[in-house]
Design a protein around this nucleic acid. Structure first.
Lengths: 329, 329
DNA sequence: CCTGACTCTGACAACGTTGTCCATGTCTTG
DNA sequence: CAAGACATGGACAACGTTGTCAGAGTCAGG
């Protein structure tokens, strides 16, 4: 910048003014400075600029896995909102590891991001309160923060599962199974709750061997499913608690002599091309990201100190056929 | 930091030393400083630090769409390598718009990222040469840079398609169709080349109505496919030039009275669950990202000025059945 | 007791920008 | 023509850190 000033024969501050398109510079001078910038290939150093202005125009996004088909569109939505607000996006995957989540979050804070969007991997976010007090706007998405009162944007997991189970009930099922992720994960617990509520609302019992919670590896899902199908009162329909479960379920069910009704949680590409096409309860992944990001920027634009909010986005049942298979009589 | 120094009763530089775990500070002093840091909730401002050290420990990734099932795992692989090198990752989607690509790249440069990984959306990257000369390591992925000599990591697109076509030929096909993306896109052109080469290698002609290049919207793909199937010498097998084409092709083909052999380019989840299971030529998306990122950090660690390299990763044929349907006699 | 070597520590400048404030020159108006 | 208003430009400090260097203290050996 010094070089540019020298070459254009003006003061440092004048170059700054030109770069920032501030008013109060003669067109003639502007031209001279522009020429010098061009000639020297000068590019403003935003790090320095931001050190001075104390706004980095960047936000950090921490999620479980950037490559996950659910989080990828969420990230993209966040990115779009960030772009609209002139901010750049740092991303990081926590891989469901609380320590890694914290590392990432604190690294972003050290970079002095303006705001943070976090899909919690840990259940204790008190480490964040000094940062929040220091002015880092923070929005949690998909799962609520642990031991911290902060903005959160969620899917109505319980409601979605209720709709899914109700769909199965409406098609004549009475013995319905549920396979979900580890109960410590908030979304998994919520979905289980939805399952119980829907069954209860229809006056149906829930046998202990009709539901299983735990890691959603193919082996485990397969075992749980076998168990549900071979007990004294085998289920005639299954609600799969997330997309990994759904995929494994489709594999197992396709090998069965007669089909079993299935509703999956989370939509996935090509669900409509399977046979039978898979009915799902779809979350609005881009919606979650967009909503969270918009909330973040609203905080940044002034409503900083309002009370934390909780937003719930509906899940949507997409009937495709697999939920409409009637129970064997 | 000033406050910390005052509270601990030491000089500014000593705090700096403690924060950076530099040697040569009495354990006693370290403890006092640590206590002060703790008490004040101090966190080093990396922006300032990086202004001084001229290394931001961050890299920028520009790709077409963060949410795309091909690019998401690529990003994740880049992120993992970056983390291993202690760097943070900026991401941005160009949405195949050259202007947006340039905006993102230059914004990252203004932030003084150490390096850049770019999936080109434009065909002219000369705007990058001043940055590269200024020391920003740059690696292109998936497609080569335009009018610029730079590192690039590619899939062997032509080779992959050759294998796919050879697979179809091996199963008795002679009239094979190809539907690809717009010919201006490097990967699409390469794949078309592979198709032609494989046909030529087998001594087979290629009729003009056997291949179609253009936007891969469902409508267009459907039209192209109809055309190939209804001409005087209808194709008996299809090579789909990317995953969007594959999906549409599966939809159309499943409605046909008798099946047609299909090989898709790019693997996709659940391909094995469709009926028939879809044979594909799979790219190694994480491999592309990993290789590019590793190359980037090698550049950063010293081999800055070596000549640009070109790396080609193989594509892998995954036979699943849809390519083994014999031609109607 | 002096010297030299060594260990800690702190003052200061610098990184590249922007905000503040003042100086200069020009124009308008009474 | 004088005086004030306005437009333009520049000097300087500051943002929060680190690199350089030199000063202060400690210790061992002569």
């Amino acid at each position: 910048m010094k070089d540019v000033a020298a070459r254009a024969g003006v003061g440092l501050k004048t170059v700054s003014r030109v770069v920032n398109e501030e008013a109060g510079v003669t067109p003639d001078t502007v031209a001279r400075v522009q020429a010098a910038i061009e000639a020297l290939g000068f590019r403003r150093n935003d790090s320095a600029r931001l050190l001075r202005t104390r706004r980095t125009s960047s936000i950090g996004l921490v999620l479980e896995d950037l490559a996950d088909p659910f989080y990828a569109p969420l990230s993209r939505a966040v990115e779009d909102v960030a772009r609209a607000h002139g901010a750049l996006l740092f991303t990081g995957s926590s891989a469901e590891d609380p320590r890694r989540e914290q590392e990432l979050v604190l690294a972003f804070c050290a970079r002095r991001v303006d705001g943070l969007i976090v899909v919690p991997a840990s259940d204790d976010h008190r480490y964040l309160s000094p940062e929040i007090e220091a002015g880092v706007a923070t929005v949690f998405v998909d799962r609520p923060a642990g031991r911290l009162d902060a903005d959160v944007v969620l899917t109505d997991n319980a409601g979605g599962v209720r709709d899914g189970v109700a769909h199965l009930i409406a098609h004549g099922h009475r013995r319905i199974g549920f396979i979900g992720d580890q109960p410590g994960i908030h979304t998994a617990a919520e979905r289980l709750r939805g399952y119980r509520e829907a069954m209860a609302a229809a006056g149906l019992p829930v046998r202990d061997d009709w539901y299983a919670m735990g890691p959603t590896t193919p082996d485990r899902v397969r075992a749980s499913l076998d168990h549900m199908l071979s007990g004294p009162e085998p289920v005639t329909a299954l609600l799969a608690g997330n997309n990994r479960v759904t995929v494994t379920a489709v594999r197992v069910l396709s090998g069965l002599p007669r089909p079993i009704a299935l509703v999956g949680f989370d939509d996935f590409e090509l669900a409509d091309l399977l046979s039978p096409p898979v009915t799902v309860v779809a979350q609005d992944a881009p919606g979650l990201g967009r909503t969270a990001a918009q909330l973040l920027f609203r905080r940044l634009d002034g409503m900083a100190s309002d009370a934390p909010t909780r937003t719930e986005l509906p899940a949507r049942l997409i009937p495709r056929g697999s939920g409409e298979i009637p129970p064997a009589s």
